[in-house]
């Protein structure tokens, strides 16, 4: 079997005395689209934040694209260049224009000259249909535009894996569609993706596998058809009942 894009073994993460991740074993294959769901506080954000070491795991092993995450700074940055992340709250840099938001990280992360980085940025911005916003500052954009710029910014680094942490939760309902559409486009392009989302329609349509977490553990994982039609665990059924309103 080919080396997976992400391999997690026995990953434990504690905040003080509280165990947020309690022995996570998870492999994500190259090109796989994973949807991660679970009740609030179940550790979904913590799990994906451990993958690019925004959170530091206490026990176990995480290997991303063949690089094991440890204390070594070079390894951490190498992993971060392979892993793009999109946040619920966009986190665009307010003091930079949309174009600079996309070009500057590329220049600093990969040492790309400015002209080349800007060309790349324009390319990604037009892929996400926000090319006409390039000269604006983020405050002037709508929520949906901000999130698409954030996706473009992450793609400028040319990552092999994309992590999404509830990318549509902070959006007005009418803007959810345009962001999901962008994520579908990425998925169809063969990107390895882990999406934390409560958009079950998206999960059905795009996911190869749905992973359900509760209390810092993975309770159940299955392809979407089976996950939604025949969930095995009682917790999953309860959760689905709440999200799908059944």
């Amino acid at each position: 079997m080919a080396e997976p894009a992400i391999r997690m073994r026995g990953v434990v993460k504690r905040f003080g005395g509280f165990t947020a991740l309690d022995g996570i074993d998870l492999d994500v294959a190259r090109g796989e689209r994973l949807v991660l769901c679970g009740p609030s506080g179940s550790g979904k954000s913590t799990l994906i934040r451990c993958i690019n070491r925004l959170d530091v795991h206490d026990e176990g092993m995480i290997v991303v694209e063949g690089v094991e995450l440890g204390d070594e700074d070079a390894a951490i940055r190498a992993v971060r260049r392979e892993v793009g992340m999109v946040f619920q709250s966009f986190n665009l840099f307010p003091h930079l224009t949309v174009l600079e938001n996309c070009a500057l990280p590329r220049m600093r992360a990969r040492g790309t000259p400015r002209a080349e980085a800007e060309a790349l940025a324009r390319e990604q911005l037009s892929r996400l249909r926000v090319a006409d916003q390039a000269a604006k500052y983020p405050d002037a954009l709508s929520g949906g535009q901000k999130q698409r710029v954030a996706i473009a910014r992450a793609l400028c680094i040319e990552p092999r894996i994309m992590l999404f942490d509830e990318p549509t939760s902070a959006l007005d309902p009418e803007m959810v569609g345009e962001v999901l559409e962008a994520m579908v486009m990425l998925a169809e392009g063969g990107m390895t993706m882990i999406c934390v989302t409560h958009e079950m329609g998206f999960a059905r349509r795009v996911a190869d596998r749905v992973v359900f977490m509760e209390g810092g553990r993975i309770i159940e994982q299955a392809p979407p058809e089976r996950f939604f039609s025949a969930p095995a665990a009682a917790q999953t059924r309860r959760f689905l009942g709440q999200v799908l309103g059944r």
Partner: peptide, 11 residues
């Protein structure tokens, strides 16, 4: 989130 985003981008 600003620092996290910048770090996550590999800066």
């Amino acid at each position: 989130g600003q620092e996290e985003a910048a770090l996550a981008l590999g800066m």
